[in-house]
Amino acid sequence: MKRIALFPGSFDPFTKGHQDIVQRGLKLFDEIVIGIGNNANKKRYFPIEVIKAHIQSSFSPEDNVKVITYDDLTARIAREVGATFLLRGLRNTTDFEYENGISQVNRFVYEEIETVFLITSPHLAPISSSIIRDLHRYGQNVDEFLPYSLSNSVV
């Protein structure tokens, strides 16, 4: 049986920390589906189509990484794409507290789903999408934190 993991998030933007989780996850799973979800509690800063294209180009040599967008419950999308695992990265204990609750709800919605947590590599732990958005918003080049260039991206 193929081990498929869904790596869900808003990825606004997708960082080198996210990329690291996917690359390390490929050692555990046969396929990873990166799911860019629409979070009703967040207003996107970068257009979802732009981020999707950047993520796809970052993994273009990998045929076992797919990128989708969705507007539904993560557990339902996992079932739809044939994933029995959710892949999540943890930078700190705050992330764990938040992700633990979500993983319990996902199991309620889709009993067969298992959440696998990978601890962020230490040199990438300080990177967060919200910090990158703030830096970018005020004109700071953020390309060193991303697996692609945003220098020409307009918001």
Rank of each mutant, 00 (worst) to 15 (best):
I36V: 12
R133G: 08
K16Y: 06
S149F: 08
F85P: 01
T115F: 00
G35Q: 03
F11P: 04
R91I: 09
I68M: 05
H18S: 03
E112L: 11
R44N: 09
I77K: 02
V22C: 02
L150K: 00
D12H: 15
I51C: 05
I34C: 01
H18C: 07
F29C: 06
Q23E: 14
R24A: 02
T115E: 00
I51P: 10
P8T: 06
N152I: 00
I132F: 06
L86D: 04
I4A: 00
S128I: 01
S60C: 00
N106A: 06
R3F: 01
V81T: 04
T15A: 01
T84Q: 11
D143M: 04
S153W: 07
L118E: 13
D63T: 05
A5T: 05
T84S: 13
V155K: 13
H123E: 15
I132E: 14
R76T: 09
S57W: 08
S153L: 07
V65P: 08
P147M: 09
I113H: 07
K43T: 14
E31K: 15
I119E: 07
F85C: 02
K27I: 05
V154G: 01
E144I: 14
V81N: 04
N106M: 05
K2Q: 14
Q140T: 14
Q104V: 06
E112I: 02
T93F: 14
D71V: 11
S60A: 08
K27W: 07
N141F: 01
E144Y: 13
L135K: 10
G17A: 15
F59M: 03
I55E: 02
A40H: 10
L146C: 02
E111M: 02
G25P: 12
G89N: 09
G17Y: 08
R107A: 04
R44W: 10
I21S: 08
A125Y: 07
Q104S: 09
Q56E: 15
D134A: 06
N38H: 15
T115Q: 01
I132G: 07
P61K: 13
I55T: 01
A78F: 12
R76H: 11
F11K: 06
S10P: 03
L146Y: 15
Y98M: 07
V142A: 03
K66S: 12
R79Y: 05
N39E: 13
S10K: 15
L86G: 07
I131N: 10
N92V: 02
